[in-house]
């Protein structure tokens, strides 16, 4: 009887651990800590843009959904409502500038007022892909 009780307790405990694991680490897992994630690729922003414009499918498979670190001359900082975006411009299209657009994490955005705050710095971000006009990096942070 005692052995059965011990076994029952053990089974209940094991079941609770499994359920708990799935609840906290699978079903309710948190978004990645983008600020502290290491980049999978480090390259010039111009090279990233060139790869996406010359072979979008190949570049999407390689860089899409990955953390990328880019460097180069940032042309402009855009402040739009709650968004702060650094833009590397490499082309002029029918609808304006085209290049690599980096949208900063909120905590980073608060520290960036103009281009002087990011000039000569590298930017790390999550690559969402290419929308036929720009390569989009999001959840970006400055690497000085």
């Amino acid at each position: 009887m005692k052995r059965i009780s011990t076994l029952a307790v053990f089974i209940v405990l094991l079941f609770s651990l499994v359920v708990g694991y799935f609840y906290f680490f699978v079903f309710n897992k948190e978004h990645p800590d983008f600020e502290n994630l290491k980049p999978e690729y480090v390259l010039e922003a111009a090279e990233l843009y060139k790869q996406f414009t010359s072979d979008p499918k190949k570049a999407q498979l390689m860089y899409g959904g990955k953390m990328i670190q880019v460097k180069g001359n940032i042309n402009t900082i855009e402040k739009l409502d709650s968004l702060t975006i650094a833009v590397y411009v490499f082309n002029e299209g029918m609808f304006g500038n085209e290049g690599v657009r980096c949208t900063f994490l909120n905590e980073e955005a608060a520290m960036i007022q103009d281009i002087n705050d990011v000039q000569n710095a590298s930017i790390k971000g999550f690559c969402s892909g290419f929308n036929d006009t720009d390569v989009i990096l999001e959840k970006c942070s400055v690497i000085k």
Binding site: G64, G65, F95, T103, G129, N131, D134, I136
Partner: peptide
């Protein structure tokens, strides 16, 4: 999604928007 690319040409009414799914 806050990365929607869009354009409107008022000379002919052409309207377009494009959106990255990963965004």
């Amino acid at each position: 999604n806050n990365q929607v690319n869009s354009a409107l040409d008022i000379s002919n009414g052409n309207f377009i928007f494009k959106v990255l799914i990963k965004s």
